[in-house]
Design a protein around this nucleic acid. Structure first.
Lengths: 173, 173
DNA sequence: TATTGTTATACTCTATAACTATA
DNA sequence: TATAGTTATAGAGTATAACAATA
């Protein structure tokens, strides 16, 4: 395919590769998270609850790059499934601390195991030695982007998988 | 952040890193494609037209991982902007071959230059030496995924940037 | 007055279905 | 009958705005 390009060839394919890999990850992750409300996104919310680092829904929403109104629905689903609970923060009763239930903790561990397996499957196209390199480079780059680009702290961001974000949607906003 | 994880720690962060980097790419690419209808996606359609490898809209849509109804709107916009034209394929008059106009070719070259610059900016967080490695590994992995996972040939897929694809949307379908 | 969380609503984008034309 | 392309419509998902509780 690259050989058929006429001029601005090779180096403009980063986005295509990223898109393919990212979407493969999304598919694998969700395929393995069927029982978790919110899919992989629910997994990360639950992770915060398990680790007790969910000081407030708004704070967590910002960390994960999703809108706080979306966080409400997400937490609704997780709570309804009995995986976590909302508790008013004694220090500031406006905040809802998210605490995992025993079932939630168990679900999170199990989902984590499946997720790691799924991720290795996604990376299956690379030689063993290169997988760690790719993970490391991506993590390093993500950290750097998070640092100097506040908008990108967003983890498993909100929204519409609009690889181009053609004109609107979550990516823009 | 990683240190605060309780148990299924480190290795479940591939998706987060991918999401951050991918979304950074989307933002940069679109910021630089403001004049091209369809953003980065329009760029790739135009690329096919310039290279004369757009045998049919449907074929190109599949290659880019977007729905053929979406392709119609995309081509509408590009044609209306005078960047390409639809021509009935003499061999099979059901197919529309996409051919770039002179303006389209020029726009594509210019956009390609801006895109390469934008991509280097996205990769700015990595040492020079690692950027090529990351590009190569991602391309290699994307090719592998495209091979053994037909669903993922999709390039700059459609749609909603739903990193999790929570429950529905483009990624699933 | 400012912020957290919630709810209702509007908006964007995509996919489904139905239609035309070609084969 | 089957496929490319188009159009209209419905569906999923997000963000905006307005509200209640708390600070």
């Amino acid at each position: 395919m690259a050989a058929e390009q006429v001029a601005p060839a090779g180096d403009t394919d980063l986005g295509r590769a990223l898109g393919v890999v990212f979407r493969a990850w999304v598919r694998s992750a969700n395929a393995v998270m069927n029982d978790l409300p919110g899919g992989a996104r629910g997994y990360h919310v639950l992770a915060a609850a398990v680790a007790d680092r969910a000081g407030s829904q708004a704070g967590l929403a910002q960390e994960l790059g999703i809108d706080r109104t979306v966080m409400t629905y997400l937490v609704d689903d997780l709570e309804r499934a009995g995986l976590l609970q909302r508790r008013a923060d004694p220090a500031d009763r406006r905040n809802r601390r998210l605490v995992a239930t025993d079932a939630g903790t168990a679900s999170w561990h199990a989902a984590g195991r499946r997720l790691r397996s799924a991720e290795e499957h996604v990376l299956g196209g690379l030689p063993e030695a290169d997988r760690g390199t790719l993970r490391r480079l991506l993590a390093q780059l993500a950290d750097a982007l998070g640092d100097h680009d506040p908008f990108e702290q967003a983890c498993l961001a909100a929204a519409a998988v609009d690889p181009e974000g053609t004109r609107a949607g979550a990516v823009r906003a």
